[in-house]
Write a protein that binds this DNA or RNA. Structure first.
Length: 203
DNA sequence: ATCACGATCTTT
DNA sequence: AAGATCGTGATG
């Protein structure tokens, strides 16, 4: 995976990240997860993006160069990870929503809980981070220069398997078709309309 | 007060 | 099956 592939708007990069692999080398072992579901957040033009209201300490990484990891805490208990895309100075990122564990399944299960079924180990953005062992300390990590968390190219995904749909769980601009996932894949999270979702204009 | 979540509960 | 509830804490 090179920077050139990521140096485009999030909605363009998001479908191309399906099939890519995130690997975390932790002291207790390595876990690799193939991405099966993503969501694009377009920055200041996107009402659902953390960057909509401009740069803040939390979202600063989104404004930086492509290929870094933006990690934030969600609802107090979960971590969520984004892959920053686009141009340095312009906010744009792809939320990693789900994936298939392809290495270190034992460790992933240890982190998630012994009775979790295999397809659910990294199903949902919070679960994905827990399985991979991602926390705030990884915020800002450069995924392309061999740090502890690395993004690599995986098996190519057939274009006909890629689906697009409305985003999950967001209360604003939820109907933007910015969620991308693999058809009929058990590791993809279930679609859930936010209880607070309001109709909105947009693509 | 809000929230890019997830597990669990209640109601059809 | 679908919808409501709640835990949890950073954020602005």
């Amino acid at each position: 995976m090179n920077v050139g592939n990521l140096a485009h708007p999030a909605e363009e990069v998001a479908p191309k990240l399906l099939g890519a692999v995130l690997t975390h080398e932790a002291p207790e072992g390595a876990v690799s997860i193939t991405i099966t579901e993503t969501e694009a957040y377009s920055g200041t033009a996107d009402p659902a993006s953390h960057a909509y209201r401009g740069r803040t300490p939390r979202n600063a990484v989104m404004f930086g160069p492509a290929g870094r990891l933006y990690v934030y805490r969600s609802h107090g208990l979960h971590w969520c990870a984004n892959i920053v895309t686009g141009t340095d100075g312009i906010a744009s990122a792809v939320l990693v929503r789900a994936g298939r564990v392809v290495e270190g399944e034992d460790l992933a299960r240890k982190r998630r809980g012994e009775k979790v079924e295999t397809p659910r180990l990294a199903r949902g953005p919070g679960n994905f981070c827990q399985a991979l062992g991602i926390t705030a300390e990884h915020n800002g990590t450069d995924l392309l220069t061999g740090a502890s968390v690395v993004l690599s190219e995986g098996e190519p995904v057939p274009a006909e398997l890629i689906r697009a749909g409305p985003r999950v769980g967001v209360s604003r601009a939820h109907d933007w078709q910015h969620r991308f996932y693999l058809a009929d894949d058990p590791t993809v999270s279930a679609y859930r309309l936010s209880p607070r979702a309001k109709p909105s204009a947009g693509a």
